[in-house]
Structures are given as C-alpha cells and as structure tokens.
Design a protein around this nucleic acid. Structure first.
Lengths: 153, 153
DNA sequence: TGCAACTATATCGTGCACGATACAAATTTA
DNA sequence: TAAATTTGTATCGTGCACGATATAGTTGCA
C-alpha cells in the first residue's frame, strides 16, 4: 500500500454520495415526468406545499440553494403556470412566491411518489430502519458542512 | 398527521443526499481550485491515475456517467493539457484517453486532498467508523439503483 | 458478400449549480 | 438626513448532467 492508495476511486468518500445523488434523481424522473416537473422544481414545490406565499430567500434557506440558482428556476416554473411571483409591499426588494391553482393541485398527484421511491430502494440488503438511520446521519453531515461553508465566507 | 405528511421536506429521503452531495462538492472546491480542476474532472483523474490509457467507455463505466457528459468534459481537459485523446488503432470507433505529463504530476499534489476533507467532516458527532459504514451502505444503494436503472432501459 | 444490427463517440438542447457582478431598496450610522 | 453598508433579486458566464439524435466503424448472419 503506497501513499497514493488514498486516491483510489474505491477509497473515496465523495464518489458514492455523488453517484447515489445522481442515481436517485434519475429514479425520480419517471414519476416527475408524469406530472411535468424536474427534480429541483419538485423540491421547490415540497417547500411551497408545506408553507405557501414565502420569499425567494426563505426558499433558498430551506433548500440550501443560492438565489441565483432558484431565481431562474422560479421563472421557468412561473412560465409553466405552477407559481406566481410578486414584489412584497412591505419590502420592495423581496419577491413573494405563491402557488397557482395548478401548482396546488399537483400536490395530490405527488403524494404517492415518496412511497414508490422507497419501494425501489428497499431490497433484501436495504431495509427501512437502515434508510432512516442513513437519513439522520446525512442530516448531521449537512449541519457540519453548511457550518463549515459559512465559516469560509 | 394527514396523508400528505409524507411530502414534508423533512420527511424526504432524497433531499439530504442531494444536499450533502452539493455541499461536499463545495467543500472540495478550494482544494481543487488550487490545482486548477473541477470536481468531475478530479473524478476522471482519479480513474486515470489508477489506470491510464483507457477508453472513454471504460471511464464512463467506472464513474457511472454517460459518455455524452464525459465527452465534452474530456475535451475541456485536453484543452488544459491534462490528457490526450487518440483514436484506438484496433477499433477506430473507440477513443483512448492518456494522461499528459502535467496530468500525471497533479497526482502528487492531490494526495493530501482526501485527508483534508475527512478533517472537515470529522467532528464530535461524526467519527471515522461511522463514515466508513455510511460509505458501504451507499455502495449497496449504488448497486440497487444502477440495476434498477438498467432494468428500465 | 451484403446488409442489418450493434457499438463508441459526438453534438444539440434544456435545465440546473454557482461564482462574480450589478442594482435597487432598506437599514445603519456618522 | 446624507452617506455607507447591508439585503434581496437578477443577470452573466462556465461547467456539468442527460435525453435525443447523428454518425462512423464493427460485427453477425442470411
């Protein structure tokens, strides 16, 4: 074992996460295609279905995505009549995002999606408690990584 | 708890993976900036440092990335004089990718990177055995998800 | 041998991500 | 209250991802 073994792909921590993230997004695709949205648009809708009429900044905070990613994303969603964007009266800098009727109605059609995805994942080697445990570990990582990130700003 | 609770962002399985993947890539950035490459380019180099002079298809298989992603990526890497691309004599359809001297030399400068990243992650709540266990769980997921994907083709 | 099927790569179009920059509105501060 | 700073969005440029499509080279088989 020489000192460059740490650079083997199989040794990397980052690669499995990166790959699983892409593969999971791909696994969502057929279900999201059916209701005509992309994966990041689905995330925005999850936020709005939970709490409607919020600012772009609030969406950005919840999804950990920069506003320069979300801004054009929301513009595309507005074009598809999923949401409305209006300047906030109290603070004219801020833009409030609200679901349209079409956007609200998609919620019902989205309800079965998480379960379908779980069924894809759950096999002999992957069981529900394991998935839940992994989720909580990853949430701890998010805390560490997003703190680390803001420390570097 | 109504039947739409499964659509809460905090309930989602996909979101933590997606976020950790992005945050991890961001955490790599300062180290990769220093040697002038992007994260996906780093992955390609990891593959080539381990086994040089292989085809685009072989890189695609190892990284689970489509060739239509890797093709332009390699073109950018060739422009930056990290690799060479040459048609294979035995099979003129195939393109062999080879490290340049500059590409090979980057390996030494990349050696410390994985350890630096581990130091970012390891805290009171995240320890090395936990990270290793998570890595093996994710590798199981890759198997399941990539099998599922190829079943749908 | 001829031609259909397959394989390896490239190109195109769309949609993220994100750093850098711009800019107007709001807030702080001198 | 005027000037400096901060905040909230938008825009621009670059680099992925990936489905769809194109194309040249190879293989299989009637």
């Amino acid at each position: 074992m020489d000192n460059t073994d740490s650079l083997k792909l199989s040794q990397q921590l980052c690669f499995p996460i990166y790959s699983v993230s892409r593969l999971l997004t791909k696994a969502y695709k057929p279900y999201l295609d059916e209701i005509g949205i992309t994966y990041p648009q689905y995330l925005v809708l999850l936020v709005l279905w939970e709490k409607d009429d919020i600012s772009i900044q609030q969406i950005s905070d919840k999804l950990l995505l920069n506003t320069n990613t979300i801004s054009p994303l929301l513009q595309r969603m507005e074009k598809r009549d999923l949401i409305e964007r209006n300047r906030c009266h109290k603070d004219e800098r801020s833009v409030k995002v609200k679901l349209t009727e079409k956007g609200s109605e998609l919620k019902l059609r989205a309800v079965p999606i998480p379960e379908e995805l779980l069924n894809v994942l759950i096999t002999e080697n992957i069981r529900l408690p394991e998935i839940k445990q992994l989720k909580s570990v990853l949430e701890e990582w998010i805390t560490v990584l997003s703190t680390h990130e803001s420390n570097n700003k």
